[in-house]
């Protein structure tokens, strides 16, 4: 193990727990804002796994992937929050179960 004092499997464990919490939140919440937050948590957990692996092998590639994930998250949240505005305007609530029909 070079370049990393923390065991890699512990970091991956934390990353997977964060991902699991995010996924659980995605499944149990019906508010679209909370769904977007859960997506952020899941993307963040994936980024943590990338950076940890990059640090484990002493390569910069992990941080490159982190930056790409960051830009994906930024684009996703911009479009997602635009959708939040549309859902709020159309259904007068943020409950995603209102939008379970296409062409509603």
């Amino acid at each position: 193990m070079e370049g990393l004092n923390v065991p890699l499997n512990h970091i991956l464990l934390v990353a997977s727990m964060l991902f699991a919490i995010g996924m659980l939140g995605l499944m149990i919440r019906r508010n679209i804002i909370f769904i977007l937050m859960s997506l952020e948590v899941m993307l963040n957990a994936a980024a943590l796994a990338f950076v940890a692996a990059g640090a484990h092998w002493g390569q910069a590639d992990g941080q490159i992937m982190f930056m790409l994930i960051l830009s994906v998250a930024a684009a996703e949240v911009a479009v997602g929050l635009g959708l939040v505005l549309q859902v709020q305007r159309r259904f007068k609530s943020l409950d995603m179960d209102n939008a379970n029909r296409m062409k509603g």
């Binding site: 990393l4 963040n44 943590l48 950076v51 990059g54 640090a55 992990g62 982190f66 930056m67 960051l70």
Partner: peptide
């Protein structure tokens, strides 16, 4: 998570995490 990044030696990623996320 930013503190974790800093601890595993990815200081730039930690800064980006705070600034952007």
């Amino acid at each position: 998570v930013a503190v974790i990044f800093y601890l595993i030696g990815a200081a730039f990623a930690a800064a980006l995490e705070i600034v952007i996320y």
